[in-house]
Each structure stands twice: as C-alpha cells, then as structure tokens.
Simulated scan of single mutants.
Amino acid sequence: MGKPDAEGHGPADGLPGLPPEWGRVVVPDDASALAAEAAQIRRELHRTTDLPGGHRGLGLPLLVLLVAVLTTLAGLLVVTWPRAGRTDRPTPAPYSPPATLTGRALPALDLVDPGQAPVPLRGLLPAMIILLDGCQCPDRVGDALAAAPAGVSVVTVTGGRTASPPPTHQRQVRALADPAGGLRAFLGQPARPGAATALLVDRTGRVTLVLPDLGPVHAYQDDLNALAR
C-alpha cells in the first residue's frame, strides 16, 4: 500500500492532520486504486438528489468521504511527483590515492618474472614501478625509460601470473607479474581502464611519489632524478 517518498517527504502509511474519526487514510501506490471510492461518491450524490430530504442525512458523510479521497490524491501526488535535482545515481568520486601513501614503506612483495621465478620487489630499488593492469601504455613506459637516470630501475607490473614482455628500447625494463595483487592492494585503489599507475620508491623503500595516471615526463622528472641521489 502506501510508502514513504524516496527523499523522506510524505507519510509512511497515512496522512497527518486529519480528524481521528476519519480513521486511517492510506496513500496507495497507484492512483487507479481510488476509482472505486470516486464512483461510490458519484452514486451517493445522485441518490441523495433523487430522495427528498436525503441530502440532509447523507451530506456530512459524503463530504467526509470526498475530502478523504481528495486528500489521498493530494498525498499521492506529493509522493510520486518528480522533483528538480533528483538524481538516480550518485556522482562517482574522482580517483585519488590514499593521502598517507607517500612516505610509507613499500611492502616486501615477491613478484614473478616471465619465467615464473620469484623476484623480491624491494631488491630492485630505487625504482619507478608502473602498474599496467589498467593500460599497457607503451608510449608512457618508453618515456619513463628514457627519462630514468642511471641506477634507477623501471619496473612494469601486470596482474595475473604472466608478465607482459617489455617494449623494445635501448635500456631494458624489468617486466614482472603480481599474481596475488599485493601491489594494487597496497595502493588501495582499483585499476582504471586507460590509466597506468606509477610509484617512485627510493633506495630505502620509502614511497616518494604516487602518479594515479602516468602522464608526461615533466610531471615527475625532478622526483625521478631524486631517486638516483
């Protein structure tokens, strides 16, 4: 039967402010449910006009019924009328890494290379670690390789058990896979299609920069150079 408005407007099972002798007035979900009451009012009005003096005895009950029907209709319109600004879906929040991630220690994760051999991630530091589970982004990876100073590893990480082969460059990228998803869990954010996430980690294992969407080199060149010091 009756139900509250989606935004909390309107009663849950009746309308307030009516005389108690009218009993419980419930707002139906469908206005067609009031057709029977409306037809009854019309029949009673015709009957009282045909009977002498009948309108005096039935006038007040009919008036009460008419007011109840009209009040119910008004309440139903309040419940179902669309309101400006109502949205069916929440607006998704923009992607952002955890605020406390920068400065935290990289966990001691063992990833696997293309031959399925375990590789301790912390043994490759200092490093720029690029997660490719949302985008292979070969151009961005190539730019990072060209920009990385000597002594700084560039590591690409894919999900699953198979490491993607590194792109062809003068300097080799270290391609690894993360079957357990430990690195993505450390980030605390899911992969986004079309975006490669990157971490800069210094030789002590401290995260110095998080790039939720790996962009042009100028956005991280200074931080990348600092890893070589």
Rank of each mutant, 00 (worst) to 15 (best):
D5A: 11
A6C: 09
H9I: 10
G17H: 08
P20W: 05
E37W: 12
I41W: 07
E44M: 13
P52K: 07
P52I: 01
R56G: 00
G59D: 14
L60P: 02
L62S: 02
V64G: 00
T72H: 01
L77Y: 10
P82E: 05
G85A: 11
T87A: 14
P90W: 11
T100G: 09
R104A: 12
L109P: 01
D110T: 12
G115D: 14
V119M: 11
L121S: 01
L124T: 04
L125G: 01
A127F: 15
D139R: 11
D139W: 12
A147R: 13
A148H: 09
A150D: 14
V155L: 07
T156S: 11
T162Q: 12
A163I: 06
S164P: 01
R174C: 08
A175F: 06
P179N: 07
G181W: 09
L183I: 01
R184S: 10
F186K: 00
P193E: 09
T197H: 12
L199K: 04
L199Y: 05
R203C: 03
L209Q: 14
L209R: 15
L209Y: 13
V210D: 10
P212Q: 13
D213W: 15
A219R: 15
A219I: 01
D223N: 11
N225Q: 15
N225G: 05
N225D: 15
A226D: 12
L227M: 08
